[in-house]
Amino acid sequence: MSLPKITRLPSARLLGSISHLHLQHQQLLLPSLLPLSVPRRAVTPSPYRRPGQPREDKPPWQKINFDFWKGVGGIKKHFALLKKEFFERWTGPEGKPILEHMLEQNRVVWEFRHPESLEDWTVSSDQEIGGQSTVNLKLGKNDTCYLYGTLNSTPPRDGETRYSGYCTMRSKQPLISFDRKKHHDWTSFNTLHLRVRGDGRPWMINIAAETYYSHQKDDIYCYFLYTRGGPYWQDVKIPFSKFFLTHRGRIQDDQHPVWLDKINTIGFTLGDKADGPFQLEIDFIGVSKDFAHTEEFAYELYKKNPEV
């Protein structure tokens, strides 16, 4: 009895037929599959938006008040500031004679003697992200800045925010004519001088300087202010060499000294996770020149190209 013959295909031909069938099957499945959409990363970080808050899709020009008389008043204001700026340059830096500017060893930058002086400051808390802390600012009985409120570290119930509980006070960016930035020039000084009266809580002093690139706009130099409880005032002198560089609350590895020629703002932040009332009273904020302090920077600097 003879067995039927089994025809065997060559291996190359067999593999070719299998790949052809696989390609036909893949072509049948491809039209049913949707293309994968990869979210595009923004070039610049978008501003903070509370979870659950709808996005504001209005174009920016709809927020502008196109009032003719408001524009006329703004033109008068800016030309008055330009005139003041022009004549101050003939007198000397900051409107002072050049000899007085060179020999100056102490300067009071902020003092609080009338309610209008509080307009140069702004306060905020974790209520911007749904928290429960409160902060207030008013003129004290002794013509001082009185900052008070209640700290609450309970995070909001939005399912995303994990940490909360902060209050801050920050100076506004000084502006000159036509809304140009004005920087504080503290190159002649090396120490920050404060006269404060607190309740024993530790505060964080934040100094913001001008930067070259947009991704560095959140760079802040920080140092701690330890207050004493009780009725007595304390004079605090902190060298600028002690301030360390942070970015959005994180200490950076690449440290460098504060650029004292382009200081924008200064602020005070409380976030010690101790729930309850707080208060901080500030008499004045100034800068001074301490000839006994010769330290340039208190922290280690890493060289990118070390010398061999």
Rank of each mutant, 00 (worst) to 15 (best):
Q53C: 03
V196S: 00
E281M: 05
G249H: 10
R250L: 15
F189E: 04
Q105W: 10
F243E: 00
I220H: 01
S46L: 11
Q105S: 09
K182G: 10
A209E: 10
P277H: 01
S124H: 04
Q252V: 14
K63E: 12
D235S: 14
E210P: 01
E94L: 12
I285F: 10
S288L: 04
K141Y: 11
Q255N: 13
T122K: 14
P39G: 01
F240T: 02
S177D: 09
P54I: 05
M102G: 15
G52L: 03
R195E: 02
E307K: 07
V108M: 14
Y232G: 14
Q255I: 11
R40F: 03
F68A: 06
N206H: 07
E56Y: 03
H78R: 12
H184A: 07
H256S: 14
S2D: 05
E100W: 13
N190D: 04
K84T: 11
E104F: 11
F243G: 01
P54Q: 12
V196F: 10
F224N: 07
D275V: 02
L151Q: 01
R107P: 11
T191W: 02
D272H: 06
G52D: 02
R55Q: 13
P156Y: 08
K84C: 05
W233H: 07
E88Q: 12
G229F: 12
N142G: 05
K242A: 04
H183Q: 15
P231Q: 07
R50P: 02
S46I: 14
L118A: 05
I282N: 00
K303D: 08
P155A: 08
D179H: 12
L29H: 13
V135A: 01
L28D: 13
W121C: 07
F240R: 02
C167W: 00
P31F: 10
K63Y: 02
V196G: 00
S171D: 09
W259T: 14
H114P: 02
I263M: 05
